[in-house]
Computed example of a mutant assay.
Amino acid sequence: MTAWKDVEEAVPEFAARVRKIFDAHKHKTIATLRADGAPRISGIEAEFVDGELRFGSMTHARKGADLHRDPRFALHSPSVDPPEGNPAGWAGDAKIAGRARAVGPVDGEADGEQFHADIDEVVFTGLTADATKLVIEVWTPRGGLRRVERA
């Protein structure tokens, strides 16, 4: 099991960049798997709390049923266009994939269930400082951090 705190300990600068992108906007997108194996994309709110990446599902929502049946998920940060005329000003985007673990009811007044993420992969996609190449950084618990640049 790899929690968000493990990513922060292993690659603190990378984790900080990824978290900043996720924290920049409230709404994210999550992919889960339907009973027939087809992907389902849903809007979701997610947050980093006490070293965990956590998110919820309203009672009887399909995404929660998906996660109980098959806990695999992929979470995508909000996508924001680069500033006009300044592609190097793009913050990039980020993805986290793993397995959701049900941990009980959501905090607060909402009726639903909370999940914590067991993280398999974290990806940052951005541009080089001169905005001439795409940069893809991938961290996995076993493989560590890898960086690829594409023209």
Results as ranks from 00 to 15, higher is better:
residue 71 P to C: 10
residue 55 F to E: 01
residue 9 E to F: 05
residue 150 R to L: 14
residue 110 A to H: 09
residue 129 A to M: 02
residue 94 A to V: 08
residue 44 I to L: 13
residue 123 V to L: 06
residue 109 E to T: 07
residue 126 G to L: 03
residue 6 D to F: 07
residue 142 R to V: 06
residue 20 K to S: 15
residue 68 H to W: 08
residue 108 G to W: 11
residue 86 N to T: 02
residue 108 G to E: 11
residue 47 E to K: 14
residue 106 V to E: 12
residue 135 V to R: 12
residue 30 I to R: 02
residue 66 D to K: 05
residue 79 S to F: 15
residue 122 V to A: 14
residue 139 W to P: 09
residue 107 D to F: 11
residue 127 L to W: 03
residue 25 H to E: 15
residue 125 T to H: 07
residue 123 V to H: 01
residue 78 P to T: 10
residue 98 G to R: 11
residue 23 D to T: 06
residue 70 D to Q: 13
residue 43 G to C: 04
residue 121 E to V: 09
residue 126 G to R: 02
residue 135 V to C: 04
residue 25 H to V: 01
residue 90 W to L: 10
residue 19 R to V: 01
residue 117 A to R: 04
residue 58 M to P: 05
residue 6 D to L: 01
residue 61 A to T: 10
residue 9 E to Q: 14
residue 30 I to Q: 05
residue 108 G to K: 12
residue 22 F to H: 06
residue 68 H to M: 14
residue 49 V to Q: 06
residue 58 M to C: 01
residue 132 T to V: 09
residue 103 V to D: 11
residue 57 S to V: 06
residue 113 E to S: 08
residue 82 P to F: 12
residue 64 G to D: 09
residue 45 E to V: 14
residue 25 H to F: 09
residue 9 E to L: 13
residue 70 D to M: 02
residue 37 G to T: 11
residue 26 K to P: 03
residue 21 I to P: 00
residue 99 R to Q: 12
residue 27 H to L: 13
residue 7 V to A: 10
residue 12 P to M: 11
residue 147 R to S: 15
residue 91 A to F: 04
residue 149 E to F: 01
residue 65 A to N: 01
residue 81 D to I: 03
residue 117 A to L: 05
residue 54 R to D: 02
residue 32 T to D: 07
residue 146 R to N: 10
residue 20 K to E: 15
residue 148 V to L: 12
residue 95 K to G: 08
residue 52 E to F: 11
residue 60 H to M: 09
residue 16 A to L: 10
residue 125 T to V: 14
residue 133 K to P: 00
residue 140 T to A: 03
residue 128 T to D: 04
residue 113 E to P: 00
residue 132 T to G: 06
residue 101 R to S: 09
residue 103 V to M: 05
residue 76 H to F: 14
residue 137 E to N: 01
residue 149 E to Q: 13
residue 80 V to M: 14
residue 86 N to D: 15
residue 26 K to F: 10
residue 142 R to T: 09
residue 143 G to R: 05
residue 32 T to F: 00
residue 105 P to F: 08
residue 29 T to D: 09
residue 102 A to Q: 11
residue 29 T to P: 00
residue 5 K to S: 15
residue 29 T to M: 12
residue 34 R to W: 02
residue 92 G to P: 05
residue 6 D to C: 02
residue 79 S to E: 10
residue 44 I to A: 12
residue 140 T to I: 04
residue 65 A to C: 00
residue 96 I to S: 07
residue 20 K to V: 00
residue 53 L to F: 13
residue 22 F to T: 00
residue 30 I to S: 03
residue 19 R to T: 03
residue 135 V to Y: 02
residue 148 V to M: 10
residue 80 V to S: 05
residue 101 R to C: 04
residue 8 E to Q: 14
residue 75 L to C: 08
residue 115 F to R: 00
residue 135 V to D: 03
residue 55 F to I: 03
residue 102 A to P: 14
residue 41 I to Y: 12
residue 58 M to T: 05
residue 121 E to T: 13
residue 87 P to G: 05
residue 40 R to C: 06
residue 10 A to N: 12
residue 129 A to S: 12
residue 17 R to C: 01
residue 76 H to Y: 14
residue 125 T to Y: 09
residue 45 E to L: 13
residue 114 Q to H: 01
residue 142 R to W: 06
residue 118 D to E: 15
residue 144 G to P: 04
residue 40 R to L: 15
residue 142 R to F: 07
residue 110 A to P: 00
residue 93 D to C: 10
residue 12 P to D: 06
residue 20 K to N: 06
residue 12 P to A: 03
residue 86 N to M: 10
residue 60 H to L: 13
